[in-house]
Design a protein around this nucleic acid. Sequence first.
DNA 1: ACCTGACCTCGTCT
DNA 2: AAGACGAGGTCAG
Length: 286
Amino acid sequence: MKKLPSKLKNNFETNLSDTINSGQVFLWKQLDSKWYGVNGKKVLILEEKLDKNNKDIHNFFRFDDNFQKIKNQLSKDNVVKDAIEKFPGMRILRQDPFQCYISFIVSSNSNIPNIQTRLEKLCHTFGEKKMIQDKEFFLFPEPEILANASIGNIAKCGLGYRSKYVKEAAIAVDKGIIDFPSIKKLDYQDARDTLCQVFGIGKKVADCILLFSLDKLEAVPLDRWVLRILQKYYSKEFQITTKTITDKTYDNLHDKIVEHFGKYAGYGQQFLFKNERDSFEKKWLG
DNA sequence: ACCTGACCTCGTCT
DNA sequence: AAGACGAGGTCAG
């Protein structure tokens, strides 16, 4: 038996389960060995062997990224390297921006099963119904519909105090104050500042939106888990003492993280996050 | 400019 | 069985 070399294997196979169950997306389910998911106005149907010629799939899985280059660069850090070796098929997805934006506003101070339930109810209440392969799906609601919905009806989806955030955020998009194609063209800082002007969006949520839907791979959402990871494995590089962080600490820390991990830091964060949560057997999509 | 508490709702855990 | 606890944060004072 030959021993594997210490450098990373060239593994390009995408692992759907690991990718979907990594806290980026919430509206996916597995039915008889296929994955079905809502992405904006589309329902994507995925088989384990992905059709890379399919334009939607190519775009959603970011096959335009050079994964080998990204992995090699991130593997300079041993903790990330271990995580990549455990989940080599995990990818960052390029989501529908509006869905991503609302999803992470809804995610604040909550947990994944709750987030999933709320988003499913939002789609069921405000989204268009679509039948595919004899199965019923509800697409993600249009900005205009949520902008004109009453806060009371949004709250019935279990959003609590986030209901007004969602309505305001939808209004901003509907009015064109928030325009995703324009934000995409801005550099990371300006893009994040623009998103943070929306009521209900702080730095962490803005980073999620940027990383998961607006192509900013240097965005690193600093949530409770990432902070925990930093104090556990990187106590020398980054000193974290508190459970939550202030606005200024967030920026300082982000700068140091990008300096340490490089411009693909967002991918690095995702591998660390996936690995750590799995090791604690935290719940993903139900 | 920081720092602290409050906050809807729903699993779990006790 | 009812009550406390905390969850991928954000806002207001």
